[in-house]
Each structure stands twice: as structure tokens, then as C-alpha cells.
């Protein structure tokens, strides 16, 4: 729901080694996603992004940043902090995938089961999340996003420029190929 009148927003926080990155380091196209694990539109985009990475395995990489809209999605912040807790143990993408594949099971009880399914100790992760050990990281992603012009979720930046088109596979392929050939 964008219009040509819109000022093009640009990513202000460059991708660093602190980011969660999936795909080749030397990819021609970097897609940065600002997402909320409880957002249905992010859930709808998830399989398409997955397929994009499969079909463009040599050219596209995906960076995931947290953008929980907590006042609308009560489980989003906890899900993000749990994903980060998994991330510090090298299991970010497994947790990310579980969250998007179980968006109707993000309550604390089911989330613990998810952590277990990913192969991590639920009690340990729960304790970290309870202590807000990963809240700063999630907040940092959020603030960087809002300063970059994230106006809802998901918001994608394709090689640093906000993608104002759709999230269906053809839209994503077109955007990625255009960026690769730019």
C-alpha cells in the first residue's frame, strides 16, 4: 500500500557481524528484514523469503532484525528475546523458523516447548528472558529500524533501500533481481 509520492527510506544501520545473517557473505543482494514474530504479515512473508533464498542461493542473503510492536502483539517481545537467547547459542535461525512456523503457539508454555524442539534448555533460556538479558539487543534493532523509516512489519530493505512493494514470491524475486543487476 505504497504510492510513488512516498519518500524513499534508507537503512541507516549498516549490516555488521553482530547481525543474524542467512546466505553467502559475498551475496550481491542483502535483504534486511525488520520483523515481529507475532505479526501475521511477517508470517505470510516467511515462506516466500525462504523460497527466495533457495532460488537465489548464490546472490541473496537475508538479515533479520527485531521490530516487536508490543502494544498490539503481547508475545512479540518475549519471542524476539527468546530468538536472541537462541542466537547467542548459535541457533538463531532454527528458533526464527520455529517461531514463524508456530505463530499460534507463542504463549510462554508453547514457547518453552519450541525451545526444547530446537534443542536448547528451556529453563535456562526462560531465565535469561525473564531477566531481560536480551532486551537491549532487541531495543537496539527496533530503534535502528524506526530511524530508518520502518513503518510497520514486515519492512524490508533491499541493498539499503526500503522495499515498498509486496511480499509475494514474484515481488521478492523481481526486487532481488533488480538489485542484483543494478
Amino acid at each position: 500500500m505504497s504510492t510513488p509520492l512516498q519518500v524513499t527510506a534508507r537503512l541507516r544501520d549498516p549490516v555488521t557481524t553482530d547481525d543474524h545473517i542467512r546466505g553467502p557473505a559475498d551475496a550481491a543482494v542483502t535483504i534486511v528484514e525488520y520483523g515481529d514474530f507475532q505479526c501475521q504479515f511477517c508470517g505470510a512473508a516467511y515462506p516466500n523469503l525462504h523460497e527466495l533464498l533457495r532460488q537465489r542461493a548464490d546472490t541473496v542473503r537475508l538479515v533479520y532484525r527485531y521490530f516487536p510492536i508490543a502494544n498490539v502483539h503481547p508475545y512479540a517481545e518475549r519471542a524476539a528475546e527468546t530468538a536472541e537467547a537462541a542466537g547467542v547459542r548459535g541457533r538463531f535461525w532454527e528458533m526464527h523458523d520455529w517461531l514463524y512456523e508456530h505463530q499460534d503457539q507463542l504463549d510462554p508454555v508453547h514457547l518453552s516447548l519450541g525451545v526444547e524442539q530446537v534443542g536448547l534448555p528451556p529453563d535456562e533460556l526462560n531465565a535469561e528472558v525473564e531477566n531481560r538479558a536480551h532486551a537491549d539487543r532487541v531495543r537496539r534493532d527496533f530503534v535502528g529500524g524506526i530511524r530508518s523509516g520502518v513503518n510497520g512489519t514486515p519492512t524490508l530493505f533491499v541493498n539499503g533501500i526500503r522495499h515498498d512493494g509486496g511480499y509475494d514470491l514474484p515481488d521478492l524475486l523481481t526486487a532481488a533481481d533488480a538489485a542484483a543487476n543494478a
Binding site: 504479515f41 510492536i69 508490543a70 498490539v72 524506526i146 513503518n151 510497520g152
Partner: peptide, 16 residues
């Protein structure tokens, strides 16, 4: 109906 409601966004940015 706006994708990603503006007022919700501003609430989530309250700490900023």
C-alpha cells in the same frame, strides 16, 4: 486500514 497502523507504531516507539 493502513498496513502497520501509524498510532500503534508511535506507541511502540514511546521509549524513543
Amino acid at each position: 486500514p493502513v498496513c502497520g497502523d501509524q498510532m500503534s507504531l508511535y506507541q511502540s516507539a514511546a521509549p524513543v
